[in-house]
Structure formats: structure tokens, C-alpha cells
Amino acid sequence: MNPVAEEKPTAVFLPGRNPMAEAWRRFRHNIPAMAGLIFLLGFLLLCLIGPWLTPFGFEEQNRSLGAASPGTMGEAGRHWLGTDRLGRDLLTRLLHGGRLSFLVAVAATMVSLFIGVTYGAIAAWCGGKRDAVMMRIVDLLYALPFTVFLILLMVIFERSLLLLFIAIGAIEWLTMARIVRGQVLVLKTRAFVEAARSLGRRSSALILRHVLPNSMGPIIVYTTLTIPNVMLLEAFVSFLGLGVQAPQASLGLLINEGVSAMESAPWLLFFPSVAFALSLLSLNFVGDGLRDAFNPKE
């Protein structure tokens, strides 16, 4: 193959520097973003291995020890964060719920990412009338009351996590499509893409190998900012009683249970809310940090 085409495309417009490394260097100096990242990694790790760390199962009940305050000694060990009304260990449930919430959020975001990127890239690449029509459709969809439809879907069909992913993903892809389209439109005219095209590369290969990797910045930023939105949506769905099935737990569900026990067992509200709020705050900080890192202005 021609060595020119094999050249790293990034080098074409930022000669001599790897933009990813550059962004990481800037990101590292952003204190809130780094703090957020560290918290997120720590919390995720805990969620993943947590169930093996605590001596309790997430659905293991000890009904005689219902709604015990934090620090109470249980049969198998100490309930560091207390227990819920059925005597289940809150810490275990929190970690279990955190895992499920992140799973839903990441999966739904991936759905939106996939639809949005494909749609946006195709629209921009085709250009002309087809682009205009495709983006007009996006505009029209923006005008639909989506949350309203989400509720309808959740009420109407058998509830499942899969449906939740798809429904939320289907709501969130519109903005992603717009962002990707904007990026691709710009990159399409860049020299390295033109060069590759003149070498007779297929469009799909071109988009995947040359265009998308160069749009990574905005895509990553928007993806990071979509995850907290999805987590909020999941919490909203739990509030309506349409969330995951008992005895499974998600952060949204735990919080919702906690609200009704606000005065009699405040820890049931406090710990899940704090975990939830810190996760969202961290995700937002990381997202903002990434944006600043990819678009250096100062």
C-alpha cells in the first residue's frame, strides 16, 4: 500500500503531536476533572468487586434487623451503611445498584452513540439533498415529546432492562447525530481525506479509518455528558415505579425507597443520594474537563 495513506491522519493537521496525548496532558492538570475521574474509577471498581467484599448478598434478608442504623452488627458482619426495611445490607445493595445503574447508563449511551454516529456520518458523507432530508428528520424528531413516549412505552409494554436501554438510547441519539455530522462535514474536505479518497478507498473504510477517529474529541465529550442524563432518566423511571424489577436495585430505585423513609431511616436516603450525586458530579466534571482538553482555548 501507499505509505502516504498509511500515515497517521492526525499528523496531517497537528504535525508532530499526538492530540490524544496532548488532551490527556491538559486533562491531568484540571483538578475537578481529575478528582471526578478518580472517584468514578474508584466507585466503579467497588461496584464491580464490592459484592465479594461484603459478607452479605444483595437480596439476603434478615427481617429481624430491619431498618438498622449504620454500623449495626449483623450475623455475618457489620452493616456499615445500615440495612433497609427487610434487613438487607445497604452497602451491598448500593454497590449492586451502582453496577446496574452504570450498566443501564453505559448501554443506553452506547445505543445512542451507535445510532447517532452512524446516522450523522452517513448524512454528512452523502451530503446534498440526502443530508438535508436526513437532518430535517432529526429536526422533526426533536419536536416530539420523547419523555412522554418513554413513559408510554414503559407503561404499555412488558418491562425489561433491554427496552429501557433502547428507549433511552433512542431518545438521546439526536444530538449525537448533529455533532458527528458537523465534524464529518468539516473533515470531509481535509487534505488527508481527499488524498485517501483519490486513492479509491471505499467510503465506509474512509469514514471508519480516517474521519471518525478525528472526530473522537467531541464524540467522547458528548458521550461522557450523556451518561449522567441517562442516569437521571433511569432515576425518573424508578420514581414512576417503572424501573428495574425487585429484588434488583438501581441507584434510582434505592433513592426512591429512601425518600419515603427520609425521617424514619435517613441513611436509606443519604447514602444512595450521595453516591448518585457524586457519580453525576464526577461525570459532569470529567465531561467538562474533556471538552476543555480537546478544545484548548487558553
Binding site: F239, F276, A277
Partner: peptide
């Protein structure tokens, strides 16, 4: 950073927690 953190608390807590 202080202001933005404070402002962000609003999007980090579901309204059904903040309200009650």
C-alpha cells in the same frame, strides 16, 4: 470551580430528592 460545583448540584440530585 466553586460556583460551577454549586450550580451542578442541581443536575446531580433527582428532583424527587431535592423536593421532599
Amino acid at each position: 470551580h466553586t460556583i460551577m460545583t454549586l450550580a451542578m448540584v442541581g443536575i446531580c440530585l433527582p428532583t424527587f430528592v431535592l423536593g421532599p
